[in-house]
Each structure stands twice: as structure tokens, then as C-alpha cells.
């Protein structure tokens, strides 16, 4: 047992995993994960390259290294900013303790739920609020919109690092953490916030949609019949302010939800509607 195998030489990188190795892995993951994204195995190659510093430390022989690399070349896909750093951190912890196979099942178990949570937080809850705010600044000619968007992107990048270290500390315990109810509460609160914002921003962003229709009305003043021009828009405002923006959004929503139209078709219908209303001199 003490006799070293002559044919298998011990790899020079073999040794304990250091904090520097973990940091290197985290940077690789957080900067490059999706650069080689492809239809077949999606984020797999990025994942393998990111975790390589850990694999190289833990593989004693070339054979072990090849085997551990092959384990990571399997299909992997989740939200790269909210979710993947946590999974990756936990997976690094498993590899460090040479529990690679357990790490693999953790990856498979968590990538689905994390894709759902991450995409919901980013795409449905936070991006719309930030994007609408930024867009309304930009439309009013202010640089603030650009900087809000820039800061938003920097935030997503920055927060991957605490995510990674949290995942690393949790290790296997991660599965139980995710099953807890804290995320549901956060999601509900953010959904409500999103709806208030959308409710306010639909009329604000689309306030340029006004009708130019005028009526000529004959009125009798002091016994003399005169023509008076009445504009339609102020009358609509009396009834319900920003009625046209609400109707157009309602129309698009109805097409998507009840008529099951694709966004591309709705885009086409809205363009036709705009051209028709413009040519008919209604708007």
C-alpha cells in the first residue's frame, strides 16, 4: 500500500483546495459561465471550465482528472445571475470534500427550481420596475435612465459573489434552505410592488396617445346660430383620464391572454392599428 504506482504519476496540482482556488473558480463562473452557451448542453462547458481549479486540486492522477471533468460535461442550465452562483458554490464544496457525485445530484436537483426563482425575480419582478423607471427618464432626455440601467447591471454582477460564498457554506444543506418559505414571501411582496408600478406607469409612459378628433357643433348664442368646435380628448379625460393608453394595453393583453396570440402577432396588430388610426386622422 505504501509502494507508489510507477505508471501513474501524481499530478503537480494535486493538494488541498485553497481559498485562492475557490476565488478563482468563483471569478471564472461569474464572468464567463455562458460564453460557450450552446443548444446541446447549454452552460455545461462554462461550468466545467469554472470548476476546473477545484477538480485539478482533488484529482491525484490523470485518470481521475479526466473522469471528474467528464462528470461536468453533462447538460446544465439555470439562471446565470440568481441561482447558478449558489449551486456552483455548493458544488465546489462537494468537490473539495471529494463528494463529486453528490454534487452532481445537487446540480440536477437545483437547476430547475433556481431557474424558476431566478427568472421570476429578474424578469418579472425587478427588471420591469427598473426598466420602466429608466425608460421614463431616458424619454424625458435625462442621463439618469442610462445610469440606473448601468447600476442595475453592476448589481447583478456584484451580487453573484456573496451568492457563491453562501452556496459554498451551505453545501448539501442548500436543498433544505430552498424548500423554506422565505422566497415565496419575497416573491409575493415584489409582485405587488410590480403591479403598483405598472398601474402608474402605463398612463405615464403612454400619455402621448391622445385623439385629435374635433366635432363642429352648432350652438345658439343670443338667438344666433354659430359653429363651435368641440375637442374629443378633454371629454374623454373627464370620463377617465388616460383612457386611450388603458384601452391599447387592454387590447394587447386580451390578444395575448384570451386570443393566445404570439407577441410577434400582437406587434403586427398594434402596428396596423397605429397606421389605421393615423391614416384615418383619429390620432
Amino acid at each position: 500500500m505504501a509502494s507508489p504506482q510507477k505508471t501513474e504519476k501524481v499530478l503537480p496540482e494535486y493538494g488541498p483546495v485553497t481559498k485562492a482556488d475557490l476565488s478563482k473558480a468563483a471569478w471564472r463562473h461569474n464572468v464567463t459561465l455562458q460564453w460557450s452557451w450552446n443548444y446541446e448542453r447549454m452552460q455545461a462547458l462554462g461550468y466545467l471550465w469554472s470548476i476546473m481549479p477545484i477538480l485539478q486540486r482533488r484529482a491525484k492522477t490523470q485518470e481521475e482528472l479526466v473522469a471528474s471533468m467528464q462528470r461536468h460535461l453533462v447538460f446544465y442550465n439555470t439562471n446565470p445571475a440568481v441561482g447558478s452562483p449558489v449551486i456552483f458554490g455548493a458544488s465546489c464544496a462537494m468537490e473539495e470534500q471529494t463528494q463529486g457525485e453528490m454534487g452532481d445530484s445537487l446540480k440536477v436537483a437545483l437547476m430547475g427550481p433556481f431557474a424558476g426563482i431566478g427568472d421570476t425575480i429578474m424578469a418579472i419582478l425587478l427588471r420591469p420596475i427598473i426598466a420602466v423607471l429608466a425608460a421614463s427618464f431616458a424619454l424625458s432626455g435625462s442621463w439618469a435612465g442610462f445610469f440606473i440601467m448601468l447600476a442595475f447591471g453592476l448589481f447583478w454582477f456584484w451580487q453573484k459573489f456573496p451568492e457563491f460564498w453562501w452556496g459554498y457554506k451551505q453545501g448539501v444543506g442548500l436543498v433544505h434552505q430552498v424548500a423554506g418559505g422565505a422566497l415565496d414571501k419575497l416573491t409575493e411582496g415584489a409582485t405587488i410592488m410590480g403591479l403598483v408600478v405598472v398601474g402608474g406607469f402605463v398612463p405615464s409612459i403612454m400619455s402621448r396617445l391622445v385623439t385629435t378628433v374635433k366635432f363642429a357643433q352648432s350652438v345658439t348664442v343670443d338667438g344666433k346660430a354659430t359653429e363651435k368646435v368641440v375637442e374629443l380628448q378633454p371629454a374623454l379625460d373627464q370620463l377617465l383620464p388616460y383612457m386611450i393608453p388603458l384601452l391599447v394595453v387592454g387590447f394587447a393583453y386580451w390578444l395575448l391572454k384570451s386570443r393566445k396570440q404570439s407577441p410577434m402577432m400582437v406587434l403586427l396588430y398594434l402596428t396596423i392599428l397605429a397606421f389605421a388610426l393615423s391614416f384615418l386622422k383619429i390620432m
Partner: peptide, 14 residues
């Protein structure tokens, strides 16, 4: 006018 109307798609999809 189309440009002013297109945000409706984004809001509706959301």
C-alpha cells in the same frame, strides 16, 4: 404613433 403605441406590448406581456 406606432412608436408611442409599442410599449403597450411590453406592458401587456408583463
Amino acid at each position: 404613433l406606432t412608436g408611442a403605441m409599442l410599449p403597450a406590448l411590453g406592458f401587456a406581456l408583463l
